[in-house]
Nucleic acid binder design. Structure first.
Lengths: 182, 182
DNA sequence: TCCTTCATGTAACTAGTTACATGATTAT
DNA sequence: ATAATCATGTAACTAGTTACATGAAGGA
């Protein structure tokens, strides 16, 4: 019974307590999103699969005519999640960065445009870091240490990226001002 | 005529000179792979599409019975590539990191396993950085400055990640040795 | 009243991977 | 010989996004 990583995300969110598909999405959007985004189009079908496999259990939580289903982990679900987390296999890491792609192909670009592009990249990472920092109070106040550490990693990572692009832009400019035609 | 980013990668590789689909894959594997991986299953169909759109032109370069097709950029192809590169739109950036996902859900993990997991993450990033560093002489000797800068970014990024995980592991251990039951 | 949030779900689509099939050439 | 590399391509599959449809509840 091999689950997709997204399946484990759903399981993991339910390990924090019973919630609806909607809740899972909201929670993922302020926590795992910066390194593992998920959408409704994955969540709802995944919940059905997990329920069919007996890893989660659905429970009706409708309020009046407004229907709502909350899911909770079953024992097998909790065991499977734990086994996955503890398995030290080298899992995949993947980055897709279109702006970096443009920078890679930017050799024919004008100096002005290159600097502008680097500035946009800096700004982009600063914005991501700022967005993450907003969730910091929430992450700091809950008892899950690793979740907080992962958030701090995200903030630090994007700040580091912003600094790197900022520095490259400055270096290139001073180099160009010095008249070195590289 | 909007191309996928992968389409632009193909175009960009051909901007360096005419090459085959096979060549494009080899080149991408030692250059863009760390932030934009591509596979044969994308390259060959993409080349057909680009040729049909008149952005590249196929040329038979078979040697005897062994067939080989090299592609080169057409003027419209070169123009489109240039326009894409120069367009400062905020393009998407995406990370998918399964190990970070496990760390995020690692709160129930034993201390020993947490430390081991962090060590595996550190090693993973060191290996990626080392793999990238191997291509450094090649990147340094060619005249495309930005390609070299992007490579240096990749090396520095993964080294930074390795250091971060390394530091977190050390911090947690000393914290635990100090007897703080967090 | 109207906008936002809550809430669930599907269908069509886009993107990308993996496995397979084929076969020549070159290095060991 | 035989293994590695060169070389092209497709089919089946997996993963994920986006748009759409529906509608209730709650706040401005």
């Amino acid at each position: 019974m091999a689950l997709s990583s997204t399946g484990y995300v759903v399981l993991g969110m339910l390990a924090l307590g019973p919630r609806s598909g909607y809740d899972i999405k909201q929670l993922a959007d302020v926590s795992t999103r910066h390194f593992w985004a998920i959408s409704y189009g994955q969540i709802y079908p995944e919940l059905s699969r997990l329920a069919k496999a007996g890893l989660v259990k659905a429970e009706d939580a409708s309020r009046g005519t407004r229907h709502r289903t909350i899911y909770h982990l079953t024992d097998p679900g909790r065991r499977l999640l734990k086994a996955w987390v503890a398995n030290p296999e080298l899992e995949k890491i993947e980055i897709r960065d279109e702006m970096l792609l443009k920078l890679f192909f930017a050799d024919a670009m004008s100096r002005k445009d290159t600097v502008r592009h680097l500035d946009a990249m800096r700004r982009r990472h600063e914005e991501i870091a700022a967005g993450l920092r907003e969730t910091e109070p929430m992450a700091a106040s809950q008892p899950h240490r690793m979740k907080y550490e992962v958030l701090k990693f995200g903030v630090a990572l994007h700040e580091w990226c912003a600094d790197w692009y900022s520095k490259l832009g400055r270096d290139l400019q001073s180099e160009w001002r010095a008249g070195n035609d590289v």
